[in-house]
């Protein structure tokens, strides 16, 4: 009997079941049944949603890259000042602002603002300590960052590696609810920065903002998969308001076709089109700035 795993991290009980069966008895079909029985469907759903979100929502680094590529100039004032760090006293505030500072770290790194990057890395590390997850950050991170100042690719790799380590650490520590808040914070800040940089000269960035419609639906599903708490209820309400603002964005999906370009690379085509009016953009921009300001004050 085959089973389908909708993703990917196996709970402790499942691991025990596999080990027990492999070591003690050893029939494949029975083992499969045991796995099905011991898997907690609710837990799996959460893990699946988180997994999906991590790939569906552009990472803070990805959004910063889009802003840079659009030809925008760095604007320090758009970031959440690290001077407000001490204002975040609850774990939910800290997790949300860890995501927000993480997005600012990506933004400053992408624009070669090494001094700012160090400041925001420090803020990220302090919030990790406050949250009891300081082990997520490489203890040599400052030395490595200092050693590669001025080398954007290396700095970006270090920042990207930091996210990767944080992601691994929180999954290992079974703190994926915290990860969900960090993801939400990073997404809020990334969209805030992107919309703040929009102008007539940045049509590609505008398109990327419109395409966040893909992400907002997944963010809703992720947060809905957790039991209600005060902060989650508030974040859910804000995400629902963002989703309402995105309701005016149309996705027209056509038939998918594939071809090969001159270099031999497969090109996946089709007539997928994402359309956003000026009015919808104005609504999205107003809403994201309001939400982001609420969490950063």
């Amino acid at each position: 009997m085959k089973k389908k795993i909708r993703l990917l991290v196996l709970p402790l009980a499942l691991g025990c079941a596999i080990l027990l069966h492999s070591c003690v008895t050893g029939d494949g079909n029975e083992s499969t049944e045991t796995i099905s029985e011991t898997t907690n469907e609710q837990d799996d759903f959460k893990k699946e949603q988180i997994r999906k979100i991590l790939y569906t929502i552009p990472s803070p680094m990805s959004m910063a890259s889009l802003i840079k590529k659009a030809g925008a100039n760095f604007d320090k004032e758009l970031m959440n000042s690290v001077s407000g760090l001490s204002n975040y006293n609850t774990s939910s505030q800290q997790a949300l602002n860890l995501g927000i500072y993480g997005a600012d770290l990506s933004y400053s790194s992408m624009f070669d603002q090494d001094h700012e990057a160090i400041l925001y890395l420090s803020a990220v590390q302090k919030l990790c300590t406050e949250l009891g997850i300081e082990g997520a950050i490489d203890s040599n991170i400052y030395e490595r960052l200092n050693a590669h100042m001025g080398d954007r690719d290396s700095v970006l790799n270090i920042v990207s590696e930091t996210y990767f380590s944080l992601d691994i650490y929180l999954k290992k520590a079974d703190r994926e609810d915290l990860l969900a808040l960090i993801i939400a914070g990073g997404w809020f800040e990334g969209l805030h920065l992107a919309t703040a940089h929009l102008s007539a000269k940045t049509p590609e960035l505008r398109q990327r903002v419109a395409e966040q419609k893909y992400a907002i639906e997944d963010l809703k599903k992720l947060l809905d998969s957790y039991e209600a708490s005060d902060i989650l209820t508030e974040v859910k309400k804000d995400v629902n308001e963002m989703a309402a603002a995105y309701a005016g964005v149309e996705i027209n999906k056509g038939k998918t076709e594939t071809s090969t370009d001159n270099s031999g690379t497969t090109v996946i085509g089709g007539s997928s089109e994402v359309v956003m009016s000026d009015e919808t953009l104005a609504l999205i921009t107003e809403k994201i700035h309001t939400i982001r300001d609420k969490y950063t004050k």
Binding site: I5, L7, L10, S31, T32, L54, Y55, S59, M61
Partner: peptide, 11 residues
């Protein structure tokens, strides 16, 4: 690389 870790122990 994408920033997230997506692995599983499978049979």
């Amino acid at each position: 690389q994408n920033d997230s870790f997506n692995s599983a122990v499978l049979i």
